[in-house]
Amino acid sequence: MVVLRLLSGSIEIFAAFIMFRLNQVEKALMVNTGLALVGPIILITTTSIGLLGIADKLSVSKLCWIFIGVSCIFIGIVKK
């Protein structure tokens, strides 16, 4: 999980440098749009790794509540 978060942060910093270097709003927007794909992928992957690591310590009802909570987050992100 740590490695994925470090990778995600490094990608964000690298993208900021690219945006600064391009110095055009349209191109910076394209770079930012690419970042919009990276963030959720890292979130899903790290959450999955974490849940798999503690799945044997949690009851089924608690796992269901976690799934419901994550689903609500994604519904909130997708809804306009």
Rank of each mutant, 00 (worst) to 15 (best):
M30I: 15
K27P: 01
M19A: 12
K27A: 11
G34K: 05
M30S: 05
K27L: 14
T47L: 12
I42K: 01
T46M: 00
I42Q: 02
P40F: 11
N32D: 04
A15C: 09
A36C: 10
L35P: 02
I41A: 15
S71H: 01
C72I: 15
A15L: 04
L52E: 13
L43I: 11
G69C: 06
G50H: 09
I18A: 08
I41S: 12
A55W: 03
L52Y: 10
L43T: 13
L51W: 05
E26N: 05
L29S: 09
G50K: 07
C72E: 06
F17D: 04
V38S: 02
T47D: 04
I54V: 15
E26F: 06
P40T: 12
W65S: 09
T33A: 10
I49V: 14
L35C: 06
I42Y: 03
I54K: 08
F67P: 01
L58P: 02
S59Y: 02
C64E: 10
F20G: 01
M30D: 06
F67C: 05
A36N: 14
N32V: 00
F17T: 00
E26Y: 07
K57N: 09
L63I: 08
N32I: 00
L51G: 04
V31N: 06
L35V: 07
T33V: 10
D56A: 07
L22D: 03
T46Y: 02
G69P: 02
I73C: 14
R21L: 07
S61C: 00
A28N: 06
I44T: 13
F74V: 11
A15F: 08
A28I: 05
V25F: 14
K27Y: 15
T33Q: 12
I68G: 00
S48T: 13
T46V: 15
L29T: 13
